[in-house]
């Protein structure tokens, strides 16, 4: 009985604070700064350098939102959150927006009263093995020892996969990515499993990268995306359409470098609406009409962000894969801008 009273009180407090926090846009404008929940440090996706300047794939989305809302991509304060604190930080209003490679799942969307507004990276769990193991498919990993991070959904995915394929494995649990890499390189496990982007990043920094292969099987769906609080739809719209604006920009060939030029010369009505030359798209969601133009000018389109932070040629060296535009066989698809 007492317990339920306590949780009732907690829920009521959450509700009250949720209502009081409803107008995130006004809060952000009044503060003059966007509070963006980010990773405590993940290569390519979000981490500060030694002088505290943040960069990364997720970080750039925060900057795009700041550019749209406040007119300055640098008016962002990045609040480092851990796997345990991230959702509470968002719910309690400590951050306005969470872009921290968080997987969109049913329970997070519903139970935790959060809204995943888009998917900015389609990830999935994969395996990495040493080449001399002679394995070409994850289904041949019968009896293998597998390095796996504890307390993540990857652990459950792994168990499911091996059970479905009726093969056995021996888990070697590790605390984090760097420990996993060390154990794997030291030979403590035959295979290392985590999200494919993480595997690629790990492999890229190994002293003998050519001796390791990432197996073709992707055993789970990990759609990662920006998260906002339930119940503030205007703010959700702003984040969602800022993201879609970056996608449309890539689709239409608008880049950070040529945005002014395109604005002056384009005959494409959708591009005009995107850049604020016609219609009043920005005004409809509480911003000004130049909002999306500023975002694109500040961080570039989706393709540029991808290429700069995690794409081929960077040390992480990820192919676009599922994250290519729908026109190029990927899943990144923005609804029409009208």
């Amino acid at each position: 009985m007492k317990k339920s009273v306590f949780f009732g009180a907690l829920a009521a407090t959450t509700l009250v604070s949720g209502m009081a926090l409803a107008a995130t846009l006004d809060d952000v404008k009044a503060r003059g700064e966007l509070l963006c929940g980010s990773n405590t440090g993940l290569t390519g996706f979000g981490s500060p350098d030694a002088s505290g300047n943040w960069s990364g794939f997720d970080v750039d989305l925060c900057r795009a939102v700041a550019a749209a809302v406040l007119g300055d991509a640098n008016k962002v304060k990045f609040v480092p959150t851990t796997g345990e604190t991230r959702f509470t930080a968002l719910q309690s209003g400590e951050v306005d927006l969470l872009v921290r490679n968080s997987t969109w799942t049913f329970s997070r969307d519903t139970e935790l009263a959060l809204d995943f507004v888009a998917v900015n990276y389609y990830d999935g769990q994969g395996f990495m093995v040493k080449k001399d193991l002679g394995v070409s498919s994850a289904k041949e990993l019968d009896g293998a020892t597998v390095c796996i991070q504890t307390g993540t959904t990857t652990e459950l995915n792994l168990a499911d996969f091996f059970k479905q394929n009726n093969i056995s494995y021996q888990p070697v649990t590790v605390a984090d990515d760097s420990e996993a890499q060390r154990q794997y390189l030291a030979g403590a496990c035959d295979a290392y499993t985590t999200d494919a982007s993480g595997l690629a990043a790990s492999r890229a920094t190994m002293p003998d990268a050519e001796n390791h292969v990432i197996l073709p099987e992707i055993i789970s769906k990990e759609p990662l995306g920006p998260v906002v609080r339930h119940g503030d739809n205007q703010w959700g719209d702003i984040v969602r359409w800022t993201y879609f604006a970056l996608l449309v920009a890539e689709e239409k060939g608008v880049t950070a470098a040529n945005v002014e030029e395109v604005l002056a010369s384009t005959a494409d009505e959708e591009v005009k609406r995107l850049l604020g030359a016609s219609g009043d798209m920005g005004a409809k969601i509480g911003l000004d009409n130049d909002a999306f133009k500023r975002s694109i000018a500040a961080v570039g389109n989706y393709g540029e962000i991808f290429a700069r932070n995690i794409g081929e040629g960077t040390s992480i060296n990820l192919a676009r894969g599922l994250n290519a535009l729908w026109t190029q066989g990927g899943l990144q698809y923005a609804p029409p801008f009208r």
Binding site: L42, S47, A50
Partner: peptide
């Protein structure tokens, strides 16, 4: 330490 490892230049250092 985690930041050092997240730095693309030093990732893999243990």
């Amino acid at each position: 330490t985690q930041l050092v490892r997240a730095d693309t230049n030093w990732k893999g250092i243990y």
